[in-house]
Simulated assay, not measured.
Amino acid sequence: MIKIAVFGANGRMGKVLCEASLSAQYAQLSTALVRESNVLIGQPVGPVIGCRDTEVAFASEKSLNSDVDVAIDFTLPEGMKAHLALAIKQRVPMVIGTTGLSDEEMSTLKDAAQYIPIVFSRNYSVGINLLENLVQVAAKTLSEDIDIEIFEAHHRHKIDAPSGTALMIGEAIAKAKGWDHAEVAKFDRSQDGGEKSQQEIGYSVMRGGDIVGEHTAYFAAEGERLELTHKASSRMTFAKGAVRAAAWVKDKPNGLYTMQDVLDLH
């Protein structure tokens, strides 16, 4: 049994991660970590996350210790940086699903991987990671005379846009085409005066309601269009993938890994 700690355990995704850790046959929720000032500290986790009874209680994130096998973090970037420091101090491997990271924050993540093994992915769904491979096949196979667009939709509470998953898909396409994603990504056409270039990847975003996550990559040519779509109906999809990644990374050497490594999709 792998002992898992969940950072941000009282958050929208944190609760689902706790539930997934409790329900997995090969894992157990060792500790549910929240901010030091949180009023939930000391209270049992079960009633808060709407899950079966458990002896685990909420604890301060600073109480993370080396008895934990792996820590999972889907919090915001600032919290993630603090949690990385705690994990390094205790030599606890991490599974990180934080999105919207800046270049500086990504650099911090890469530096931390020199001291502990880390799985980082913008999306832990098995289906999305298969989609990442499929869009690369499409980008390599289809002719150069094609328009590439990515659409994503999420609930109204999501902060970053485009989503980290949409960018992951776009970066996979750019890699397959031999493009520099930073040069070909197009986020706004409101000031464009000409027609669309076929040397770009366009992004469009929807925010509304309770949409868990939808992503579509469009490959549009004259006379035909290929659409590759993934729709998530439950956050549990991502949580189960994260727990699977935690079991995988437990005994790995220090380094930065992805869900593609976990699923052996390379």
Score class of each variant (00 low, 15 high):
261 D>C: 13
44 P>T: 10
124 Y>H: 05
61 E>H: 01
239 A>F: 03
120 F>W: 09
246 A>I: 06
138 A>P: 05
242 A>H: 04
218 Y>F: 13
107 S>F: 08
34 V>E: 04
180 D>F: 08
231 K>C: 10
79 G>Y: 05
39 V>Q: 12
147 D>W: 08
42 G>R: 02
4 I>W: 01
143 S>Q: 06
224 E>P: 02
213 G>I: 08
259 M>I: 05
15 K>W: 13
163 S>P: 10
172 A>C: 07
165 T>P: 02
101 L>T: 11
18 C>T: 12
122 R>T: 04
250 K>Q: 04
235 R>K: 11
110 K>N: 11
119 V>R: 00
37 S>E: 12
176 A>L: 11
75 T>S: 14
228 L>D: 04
160 D>R: 01
87 A>D: 03
11 G>L: 14
8 G>M: 13
110 K>Q: 04
157 H>W: 06
209 G>E: 13
190 S>W: 05
178 G>F: 02
65 N>F: 03
251 D>W: 02
48 V>N: 09
7 F>I: 14
183 E>I: 10
51 C>I: 15
78 E>N: 02
90 Q>G: 13
63 S>Q: 01
191 Q>P: 10
182 A>C: 11
1 M>I: 10
265 L>S: 10
21 S>I: 15
241 G>P: 02
19 E>T: 15
97 G>C: 14
185 A>D: 05
95 V>Y: 01
107 S>G: 06
2 I>L: 09
8 G>D: 09
45 V>C: 07
48 V>C: 11
48 V>M: 11
24 A>Q: 05
150 I>G: 00
224 E>G: 08
109 L>E: 01
171 E>W: 06
129 N>K: 00
33 L>W: 00
135 V>M: 06
261 D>H: 03
93 P>W: 01
203 Y>W: 02
70 V>T: 03
75 T>A: 15
90 Q>S: 09
247 A>S: 15
150 I>N: 00
225 R>V: 12
20 A>V: 09
264 D>P: 10
245 A>C: 06
106 M>N: 08
128 I>C: 05
172 A>W: 00
233 S>P: 09
222 E>C: 06
42 G>N: 06
85 A>E: 10
91 R>S: 14
126 V>S: 03
13 M>E: 12
263 L>E: 02
209 G>A: 14
124 Y>C: 12
135 V>C: 08
182 A>Y: 03
62 K>R: 04
